[in-house]
């Protein structure tokens, strides 16, 4: 049980008996099991923390340490992230690989189907969100312990998702396969520099306070070094727009790009942008197919994976099929 692991870990590190209270598991976030709790020591010391640990089955195979290193890289910077405490790449501390962070108080995250998750604060949160993305992309990947991709970053990502699709496909997917063929035949220019790519930067993967302030960027488990256009295209994909036509459901696209350019020091390359917007839908479809495969093979019965294999799957199949018309 997480409470036992947490009590043992904190007692060992604080050097005193501790009590765990308010333990709560969050719903969603299929790549990790996420718990929050309050830790109170015999001396009265008290902290609220979040534990993220690997589940037996998840949507995406991820590097256990990469997420923690990325959070460490930005802790205390102008990119808001939770404060990291400790990571164990093995099962000893928390029962499975995982890490601890201090809880971000008062934060809320948007759901995929929420119609207006940011209320009247969309523009304000959006400016902060795309500015933070630009700051991430201004960072040095080596500072986050990220290796350069083995080939052209775009083709490396395409190869990554092609391999995931090859491993998880269970029936013909002509729209996806045609899009992959187009992407392979039309690689974009290499970026002027490698960036830290969050890998899942989107509405729903950050906390805000409900009053217009972005509190923390979350879910760094797919972080890697690559082309900054990758994150921007994923963040601006219509799936994350809450049916609004705005980037992330927050800003008109031109304003989102302007905020990102100002913070990153990069300039949007229209050819790369077009390529990565197709790639975003390809990535999405492969993730949704992998989720379905988990269910079909009986490795998971999590309704979140059933949801992923149904609603986002149909969404991206439709948008990608229509995108093929213009290629």
């Amino acid at each position: 049980m997480p409470a036992d692991h947490l009590a043992r870990w904190f007692a060992g590190h604080w050097g005193e008996a501790v009590e765990i209270s308010g333990l709560k598991r969050f719903h969603g976030g299929s790549a990790r099991q996420t718990y929050r709790c309050d830790v109170t020591g015999a001396s009265g010391r008290r902290e609220s923390v979040v534990l993220r640990r690997d589940p037996p089955s998840s949507l995406i195979e991820t590097d256990r340490l990469a997420e923690y290193r990325a959070i460490q890289c930005f802790a205390g910077s102008d990119v808001p992230v939770p404060e990291p405490i400790f990571c164990d790449a093995g099962p000893e501390s928390f029962g499975s690989p995982g890490f601890l962070m201090r809880e971000v108080a008062g934060g809320q995250a948007a759901g995929l189907l929420d119609p207006e998750p940011y209320g009247d604060h969309g523009a304000s949160v959006g400016q902060q969100f795309f500015t933070a993305l630009g700051r991430v992309h201004a960072g040095d990947p080596t500072a986050a312990g990220l290796d350069a991709p083995p080939t052209h970053p775009a083709l490396a990502r395409l190869a990554h998702w092609q391999a995931a699709y090859a491993a998880d496909r269970f029936r013909p997917e002509p729209v996806l396969e045609a899009a992959m063929a187009w992407l392979a035949a039309n690689p974009p220019p290499a970026p002027p520099r490698l960036s830290i790519v969050h890998g899942d930067y989107r509405s729903g993967n950050f906390l805000h306070d409900g009053a217009g302030r972005l509190l923390a960027i979350l879910d760094w488990e797919m972080v890697h070094a690559g082309d900054a256009h990758e994150d921007l295209a994923w963040a601006c994909d219509p799936l994350w727009s809450h049916f609004s036509g705005k980037a992330g459901g927050m800003l008109p696209l031109a304003e989102a790009i302007a905020a990102w350019e100002a913070a990153s020091g990069l300039t949007l390359d229209p050819i790369a942008w077009a390529w990565w917007r197709i790639m975003a839908q390809v990535q999405g479809l492969v993730i949704w197919i992998s989720a379905a495969r988990e269910i079909i093979d009986g490795r998971s019965h999590d309704p979140v994976l059933m949801f992923a294999g149904t609603i986002p799957y149909r969404f991206h199949t439709l948008t990608l099929a229509k995108a093929l018309e213009g290629l």
């Binding site: 219509p238 727009s241 049916f243 609004s244 036509g245 609603i311 969404f315 439709l318």
Partner: peptide
């Protein structure tokens, strides 16, 4: 669900 809305 509502139809997908392009982000442009």
């Amino acid at each position: 669900l509502p139809p997908p809305v392009p982000v442009t």
